[in-house]
């Protein structure tokens, strides 16, 4: 993969530094924290710790300019997310004494946009394709952010996390890697399935929802939150996946595209049980101080993913408004 085109001054400086250029990367100044420019820059910095870029300096991952910039942005994002989810975590703690009950209460408490329902019933073929493209930022590296947690836990939680990841990574069959199933789905629809292909056009909220996974996964201090994120993700998957599969079939896209989501109805019904009890509850039993971070991570997942879904739906709503406006103009003109 090559470094993406920049989307503003922040990503321009970061991308130049990653390439080995001599750009100074000014510290984050509080502007545009959730905007596409800063979030693309952060995605690039994180990607240096995954598969990297063919045209980046080989040691850019530990370039001190990038590390310093990243720490400032991460601190601001984490502080904002802690403020934003404080009430959610409090609601969860009130609702139950046990962690599984608290996580379930959290999922019930945070409402998301009706994106899956919309895809199932009303989205156009183009909107379904747009959804698949936007989601590719994550699914082409599916589960990689949470895999960073494996060496940071031990005992039964480690065993269960390895078991879940083994399933995500194909269960011993390379052709069943979930990221590959998603690439197959994209290709069957004629969409570029190259790793990272759609990052440069993804919305700020989509990039943020990806970046928080890396933020929680790459910092050992936050590994409890990464597990909580995984719990919320898996626990809110089966019903949307069923609806999305139905939407894909409704608009007449190929079976391979629906197959990814059918597989996830079945897989995530398993993963939901494994992550709640075998991973999160065991991790908190082993280290009770993790409880609030597990709840924090779950709330983060629910909030940022709701934002990413809402951004997509807003785009479609405003397009529909423009189209309605245009056709009203046409009527006036032809009257």
């Amino acid at each position: 993969m090559l470094l993406p085109a920049s989307r503003g001054p922040v990503s321009a400086a970061v991308i130049d530094a990653a390439r080995g250029g001599d750009a100074t990367v000014p510290p984050h100044d509080g502007d545009d924290l959730h905007g596409a420019d800063t979030q693309l820059a952060l995605w690039v910095v994180y990607e240096l710790s995954y598969r990297g870029f063919d045209d980046a300096a080989d040691d850019a991952e530990w370039d001190l300019r990038l590390v310093a910039w990243r720490r400032g942005v991460e601190t601001a994002i984490e502080a904002g997310l802690r403020r934003r989810t404080a009430d959610d975590v409090a609601v969860a703690r009130e609702a139950s004494d046990d962690l599984v009950g608290q996580l379930r209460a959290l999922v019930a408490h945070v409402d998301g946009p009706p994106l899956a329902r919309f895809l199932q019933r009303s989205a156009t073929r183009d909107q379904v394709l747009e959804f698949l493209t936007e989601r590719s930022v994550y699914h082409l590296k599916e589960s990689d952010p949470h895999a960073f947690v494996l060496p940071r836990v031990d005992g039964p939680a480690k065993v269960a996390l390895a078991e879940l990841l083994y399933d995500e990574y194909g269960g011993g069959r390379p052709e069943r890697l979930h990221s590959l199933l998603y690439a197959d789905a994209l290709r069957s629809c004629g969409i570029d399935a190259t790793y990272g292909a759609h990052v440069a056009n993804a919305s700020g909220p989509t990039l943020l929802s990806n970046n928080v996974m890396s933020l929680l996964g790459l910092q050992r201090r936050l590994h409890g939150a990464s597990l909580g994120h995984l719990a919320a993700f898996e626990t809110t998957s089966t019903d949307p996946c069923r609806r999305i599969a139905a939407g894909i079939e409704r608009v007449g896209l190929p079976e391979a595209a629906a197959a990814y989501f059918h597989e996830h109805v079945e897989a995530d019904a398993v993963h939901e049980q494994v992550v709640l009890t075998d991973i999160c509850a065991n991790a908190v039993d082993a280290d009770p101080s993790l409880r609030d971070d597990v709840l924090f991570g779950a709330a983060v997942c629910l909030r940022v993913d709701a934002d990413a879904g809402a951004a997509l739906m807003d785009r479609w709503t405003s397009e529909a408004a423009v189209a309605a406006h245009d056709s009203a103009d046409d009527l006036v003109r032809s009257a």
Partner: peptide, 21 residues
């Protein structure tokens, strides 16, 4: 075909015998 499976116990799954949530 997977390391762990969830067998439906509520009788309502659309993908029986597997749980579908």
């Amino acid at each position: 075909t997977r390391p762990v499976v969830a067998v439906c116990a509520c009788g309502r799954s659309g993908r029986a015998p597997w749980c579908d949530g």
